[in-house]
Amino acid sequence: MNKYTFLCVLCILCIVRSATTSKAEQSSQDITIKLRIKRQSCQDGTYQHENKTCCLCAAGHHLDSHCSMNPDDGTCIPCELDRTYNSYPNFLDSCEPCTSCNPKANLEVEDKCTIISDTVCRCKQGHYCDKGKVHCRACYPCTICGDEGTKVACTTTNNTICHDDQKQGGGRSHAAVLGSVMVIAVFLIFCCLRRNNKYGFGKKLGQNGGLTKMSNQNSKVAEEMQLLRGIDLWPHLPDIAKTLGWKDMKQVAERSGMTIATIESHQLNYPNDTQEQCSSLLRAWVEKMGMTTASKTLIQTLRRMNKNAKADNIMAIISNKENTV
C-alpha cells in the first residue's frame, strides 16, 4: 500500500466515524427532548383516578372526562366567560358561578368576572361596607353630618365620622334643660299627691283603683309565663309570622340584640316577599333565643313595645294549637 492509498483510507475512516458520532449525539438529543416533553405534559399537577395518574385541568377550565391510557389524554372544557370561573388547577366537573353585584344592596361591579377570577363588587357612591370586599353582601348609606361638620369623610369601607364638640355641647345643654324640667314636674306631682292624700282622695284611689289594676296585671303576666313555659314555637312559626309582620318582627329582633346587618340580610334574600322576609327572620330569631324560651321572650318583648293586641293574638295561636295537640 503506497502513501496516497493509506491517506485516502484514513480520510474515509474519519468521515465514517464523524457521521456515526453525529448520529449518536442527535439520537441522544431527541431522547432528552422527549423526556422533557413528558415531564411538562402535566405542568399544573396531577390527581389519582381509578389507580391512574391524570393531569389536572388548568385554571379557567373544568374536567369533562378522566384520562384513560396516558396522564394527558383526559378532556378539559373552558368555563363560560362572564358566567363561571375556576381560579386554580382542578379536576372539578363544573366551574364556579360568578358573583352577582346586587344593585338593591347598593353594590356595583368593580372588576368583571373572568374564567380565572370571580367578580369584585364595590359600594355605590355615597355608601359603605366595613366588612371587607370578600364578606360584604350589602352597603349602607353614608352618614351626613350637620352643623358639627365632617371629621373623617365616608369611603367605600368606612362610614362618615362627624365632629362631636358642638354636638356634645348641644347635648349637654339640652340634657340640662330636660333634667330641670323633670325635677320641677316631679316636685309638682309630689305636691298634688300630698294634697290629695290630705283629703283622702289619693288614698282611696290607690286602694280601690291602682292597686287592684296592678294586681290584675301581675296575675295575668304570671298566668301567661306559666302557660308559655317549655313551649316550642317552631310548629307555630307560619301563623306567628303572619300575625307579627315585618316591621314588628324587625323591632323584636333589634330589641333582642340582633345586628342591623343580620336583620337586613333576610330582607335582601327575599326582596319581593315581605311575608318570607318575616318568616326567615323569625326562624333565625327563635334559633338565637332557644326553642323553649323564645315564646316567653317574644310575648314579653311585645308587651314592652305596647303591642298587646299582637301579643294576645299570638297567645291565642299557641293556646289553640297546644290544646289541639
Rank of each mutant, 00 (worst) to 15 (best):
T46K: 07
I317D: 00
G126R: 12
S265A: 14
N51G: 05
V152W: 05
L244H: 04
Q251P: 02
K124F: 04
W285F: 02
P71V: 09
T75A: 10
M315G: 02
H66I: 03
H61E: 05
C162Y: 01
E80N: 12
H61G: 04
L13G: 09
N2P: 07
E108K: 14
L193S: 03
K307V: 00
L10N: 01
T114R: 12
L13H: 06
C98T: 02
C57W: 00
R36L: 12
L227V: 11
K167M: 08
T160V: 08
H62C: 07
M69H: 01
S256L: 06
C8S: 13
S22Q: 13
R303V: 05
W285G: 01
L193I: 10
I240W: 00
V221K: 12
T32M: 10
N216W: 07
M69E: 03
T75G: 03
M258N: 01
N90Y: 11
D64Y: 12
E50I: 08
H174K: 12
S279C: 04
G245C: 14
A261N: 05
L7K: 14
D73P: 03
D273F: 09
R304K: 08
S215I: 02
A185Y: 05
S117E: 05
C79N: 03
V221S: 01
I263L: 07
K3L: 09
A175M: 05
D44T: 05
T46F: 06
D118E: 08
I77K: 14
C162T: 03
D248W: 00
E148T: 12
I314T: 01
K133P: 07
K3V: 10
K167I: 03
T262Q: 12
C278A: 15
N159H: 06
E25I: 15
L13F: 15
Q251T: 11
P89K: 14
Y47F: 15
C145E: 08
A175E: 04
L56Y: 05
D30Y: 08
C67Y: 06
V109W: 02
G257E: 02
V186P: 00
A175Y: 10
Q251S: 15
N313Q: 13
S319I: 07
S18H: 11
C54F: 10
E322R: 15
K133A: 13
Q40A: 13
L92I: 06
Q168M: 15
C139S: 10
A284H: 05
G230C: 03
G132C: 03
L205H: 15
Y140E: 07
K247E: 13
R283Q: 07
Q166I: 10
V120W: 01
L107K: 08
K321G: 08
H62T: 11
L237W: 01
C136D: 10
C57K: 04
L281H: 03
G146L: 04
T156Q: 10
I77Q: 10
T274V: 11
K38N: 13
H163C: 02
S180Y: 05
N51W: 02
H127R: 14
C136P: 09
L228R: 00
K198F: 12
S68E: 06
K124P: 02
L63T: 09
K242Q: 04
N218S: 07
T293D: 07
N208P: 00
